[in-house]
Design a protein around this nucleic acid. Sequence first.
DNA 1: GCTAAATATATCGTAGTGATATATCGTAGT
DNA 2: ACTACGATATATCACTACGATATATTTAGC
Lengths: 176, 176
Amino acid sequence: MGNAVTPVILGLLSIGPRSGYEIKATVDRSTVFFWAASYGQIYPELRRLEDDGLIEGEDASNGARARRVYRLTAAGHRELEAWLHGGDFKMELRDESLLRLFFADALPRDEALRLVEARRRMFEHVLGQLRAIDERPGEDPPFVDLVLRWGLAYTEWETQWCAEQLERLTEGATSA
Amino acid sequence: MGNAVTPVILGLLSIGPRSGYEIKATVDRSTVFFWAASYGQIYPELRRLEDDGLIEGEDASNGARARRVYRLTAAGHRELEAWLHGGDFKMELRDESLLRLFFADALPRDEALRLVEARRRMFEHVLGQLRAIDERPGEDPPFVDLVLRWGLAYTEWETQWCAEQLERLTEGATSA
DNA sequence: GCTAAATATATCGTAGTGATATATCGTAGT
DNA sequence: ACTACGATATATCACTACGATATATTTAGC
């Protein structure tokens, strides 16, 4: 695997041929919550993967507008499967809301509590976005469906956790 | 806020004076799960923050070994509080395990299920690490404690979710 | 026919990562 | 006392990634 976008590209092309633009668009409405990708990564990587023989591009220009559609080669399939079997999966999180909470002892208590409330609202907002996605649980291939379910379940868990903690932290302090 | 490390530096210095090395060490055993920082960011940023008057460095060399300890200035305190009050908190996730699951329909069912099991084991491992941290819930300032609780609760939730999904996906298929 | 949005590729400055170089101090074992 | 190793401490560099934007064409709505 060359870099971070390599698996998404190979994975999406394993489902069907796509252009760089379509890859970006697909990522932006599916994996973006846990795996983002930018044009600045995608286009150079498509060229590299073609040079390495893992994908094959075909000209699909529409009139004067250039367009290149890529499909996975046999070698690309093997590479994708090797990655799927690979043992180590890294996980990185960058959560500014948690960082604020971590330093919130520097604030007056009521303002710190408002940060928890703001976190809850943030996840409620995301929940709305996820529920607005037209594909509903059960209507996708089982493991795509699994990941969609994860998104919903995780977001719901976060909102509930915030609510519980708010309750715990304000407990008995309502009129003291 | 200059860049991504700025808030951690200001936040940690608001608790007490530290050297760059100590900032890195503190981050690595506290915020690293949701906010990492590298020397390549920390040292240049310390200089920039000192130039801007948000922190003040003092020489604390020990014999021939150079050491510089920084503390927050009044302006730095104001900057930190402004950030704590700021409205927008970004959240980014990069989860290779989820990405694998997303493309797992390309695998035979039993191998795909093993990916779920591997995810569960990964979070069980993290849970062990978190529980090994000497500071236990209740023994820190309330909001530091809150974030520690979050880490434990989140990791537990992930292991449970994996177990539930494994059950759902193998349901009735044990001897069919 | 006009305009706005969508399609499509390409690139560039800035910033971050992880690794490493350099050097000293503390300490545990012998 | 000596020595080796790990921890402390700062600094830097090559590589990679990101986000934004430039450029241009086609489609769709009105």
